[in-house]
Design a protein around this nucleic acid. Structure first.
Length: 479
DNA sequence: TCCAAGTCAATATG
DNA sequence: CATATTGACTTGGA
């Protein structure tokens, strides 16, 4: 089924139904039950539009998306997760038959839904589909059927397999390379899939903190120093930026919806991602690197930020020493901005013993110089942010975070205001803006993580602002 | 061209 | 087995 078989049977319930989104009332929910928002009360009394025939007739999902009112993405994913788990339905099945997405994408979507107003038309599609599915009284049943069918087919296959053995790829002799431990037999045409070593990720993160938008030259340097392909570095930055951004959205949502309420656990806690670590500072004044992070979840981690938003002209940029092993360079005619990617000297400290560095890869050439790039213990990166208020000096572990609010405002501004709403409530975006700032007001939140992330993201924002500096839409961001 | 947003798909993890 | 993570690719906009 290369292409979406998409049922689409009743794709078009009365539009109204879709619209009947629970509207995330502020309801502070009472005790345990996490706000059960309206389960499909099936209020579709006179849902005319019988329209049993899927016959393209109605609107395509895309059209539905276009006229859809604001949906509570967080609430939707929450309910979907409940329904799926309650009925033992997997993401794969759900994704392939209902959303037309792969398992990984579904997982991601369910775990980190972006707020509606930050989604593009395309990005909203899955949510509209989910809402539609939730509204369908037979949703579970249908999926169950699919599951059964799939299993049946699977059984059949096995049965017929009778000794068939895999008639496909074997190709090269009956290589029974038993264990060789070398997953090499692959067609050399198959790309190995790059896997960045933890050290490499660390180095990249550090680079990001200094410059979220590295220049081509910087990228080249990083690639060289880390012994990675340029494209890999580029991709990494794209991905990292976008994922960091998403993390922020998540926290935005969570903070807004359930601003600390019933104390008692709250079932949804299981999805707690960003561990609210509690600043381990205390005595040691030295900010220094965070611990090698034993496991740390996800990407979030320590990010400080230092602007350095290319203030062009200024030649005071960070001219760090690159490790000694950076031979090249020096011929750079222009201002060379080399980085120094330090890595924790993993020596003392606890840290886990395993320090696997599958530095394999390395295409044909392969002269992987193992762990060459270690580092010299360089102190904290000095260099302060020259940009306006974004001066979060790493040195002063604290730094009054006044820039906070401004960053937040800016954050929500650049969004693409979905003006295509049919005319009904159009001010929704404003509402979200409010809730956001409100939630954020919980200053003193020792949530160091969040703070760092926001700080790190400032660069990102600044960059975009600068870019769009001059002519920008009517939006007026007042600082 | 660069960027962001969505995804895929391989592979980690549980 | 299922779910989570993540480098790379695809689209669409300037």
């Amino acid at each position: 089924a290369p292409e979406s078989p998409m049922s689409s049977s009743e794709s078009v319930k009365s539009l109204t139904e879709l619209v009947q989104q629970p509207c995330p009332a502020i309801e502070t929910s009472k005790d345990g039950k996490p706000q059960e928002s309206s389960e499909p009360p099936v209020s579709e009394s006179q849902s005319t539009t019988p329209l049993p025939l899927s016959g393209h007739s109605a609107l395509s999902i895309q059209e539905l998306v276009a006229v859809s009112p604001e949906l509570d993405t967080y609430g939707i994913t929450k309910r979907v997760k409940e329904v799926l788990t309650d009925n033992n339905l997997g993401q794969r099945l759900f994704g392939e038959t209902i959303l037309g997405l792969t398992q990984g994408s579904v997982s991601d979507l369910l775990a980190r839904p972006k707020p509606w107003h930050k989604l593009s038309l395309k990005g909203r599609e899955p949510f509209v589909r989910m809402q539609l599915w939730l509204n369908d009284p037979n949703n579970v049943e249908k999926l169950m059927d699919m599951k059964r069918m799939e299993k049946k087919a699977y059984m059949k296959r096995r049965h017929s397999s009778v000794s068939d053995s895999q008639p496909c790829e074997p190709s090269s002799a009956g290589i029974d390379y038993s264990q060789g431990a070398s997953p090499q037999p692959q067609h050399q045409l198959k790309k190995p899939r790059v896997v960045l070593a933890p050290e490499e990720k660390e180095a990249l993160k550090r680079a990001y903190q200094q410059k979220p938008y590295p220049s081509p030259k910087t990228i080249e340097e990083l690639a060289t120093q880390l012994n990675l392909k340029t494209s890999t570095v580029i991709n990494w930055f794209h991905n990292y930026r976008s994922r960091i951004r998403r993390e922020l959205f998540i926290e935005e949502i969570q903070a807004g919806s359930q601003s600390q309420a019933g104390s008692s656990d709250s079932p949804s806690a299981r999805s707690s991602r960003a561990v609210h670590s509690s600043e381990g500072d205390s005595c040691d004044g030295v900010d220094t690197e965070g611990p090698p992070e034993g496991k740390q979840s996800g990407l979030e981690a320590d990010e400080y930020s230092n602007a350095t938003t290319k203030s062009q002209g200024g030649q005071a940029e960070s001219a760090f020493e690159a490790g000694e092993e950076v031979p090249q360079d020096a011929r750079s005619s222009e201002k060379t901005e080399s980085f120094h990617l330090g890595m924790e000297s993993l020596e003392d400290t606890d840290d886990e013993g395993r320090l696997k560095a599958p530095r394999q890869s390395s295409p044909p050439g392969s002269q992987s110089s193992g762990e060459t790039l270690e580092t010299m213990p360089n102190s904290a990166t000095e260099e302060d942010a020259s940009t306006s208020a974004a001066s979060t000096s790493v040195l002063t572990g604290e730094s009054s975070f006044k820039s906070k609010e401004s960053s937040e405002k800016m954050l929500s501004v650049p969004s693409t205001s979905s003006t295509l709403a049919a005319g009904s409530q159009k001010a929704n975006s404003i509402q979200s803006l409010f809730s956001f700032s409100e939630a954020a007001s919980s200053k003193n939140t020792r949530d160091n993580t969040l703070r760092k992330k926001k700080a790190a993201n400032l660069n990102n924002i600044i960059h975009r602002l600068e870019k769009a500096a001059s002519r920008e839409e009517p939006v007026e961001w007042e600082f």
